[in-house]
Simulated assay, not measured.
Amino acid sequence: MNAAPEEITSLVGREVYSNNGVFVGEVEDVRLDLDTQSVTGLALAELNRELFAGRVDGNTGVIVPYRWVRAVGDVVLINDVIERLETGTDEPEAETEQQAT
């Protein structure tokens, strides 16, 4: 994604849902690759507690790889791979990120 700075910052605060309509979390920040000037991930907070039960605690967020993003509009839609975390599929998991307290 080679978006203008105003487009990147507009992602912050948007709710993130899977393709199946399951709430995942809220965009807190974006991960950038400065060499390629592209977004590589979305840092999520306010996570769906049921979806991440036993995987993250209240002070931890996750970084979702940007390749999982399917669409950006009023909300961000990502692949339903996030819902398969419990199934143990081979798809790489979202990274956890310790939030500053």
Rank of each mutant, 00 (worst) to 15 (best):
M1Q: 12
A3I: 15
A4L: 09
P5R: 05
E7W: 15
E7M: 12
I8C: 06
T9I: 14
S10N: 14
S10C: 01
V12P: 01
G13L: 08
R14H: 10
E15P: 04
V16A: 08
S18H: 11
S18Y: 01
G21W: 02
G21Y: 09
G21E: 09
G21D: 08
V22N: 10
V22Y: 13
V24A: 05
V24H: 04
G25K: 07
E26V: 15
L32G: 03
D33Q: 04
D33P: 03
L34M: 13
D35W: 13
S38K: 14
T40L: 07
T40E: 10
G41S: 05
A43P: 00
A43S: 11
L44I: 00
A45M: 13
A45Y: 10
L47Y: 09
N48F: 09
N48L: 08
R49I: 10
E50L: 08
L51R: 11
R55Q: 09
V56D: 00
D57K: 10
T60E: 04
G61R: 11
V62Q: 05
R67K: 10
R67H: 06
W68Y: 11
V69L: 11
R70P: 01
A71H: 08
A71R: 08
V72T: 02
V72H: 02
D74C: 00
D74A: 14
D74P: 00
V76C: 07
V76T: 02
I78P: 00
I78W: 01
V81H: 03
I82Y: 05
I82M: 04
E83S: 04
E83W: 07
R84E: 14
G88D: 06
T89K: 08
D90P: 00
P92W: 14
P92D: 08
A94N: 03
A94H: 03
T96Q: 11
E97Q: 13
E97Y: 15
Q98C: 06
Q99D: 14
Q99L: 13
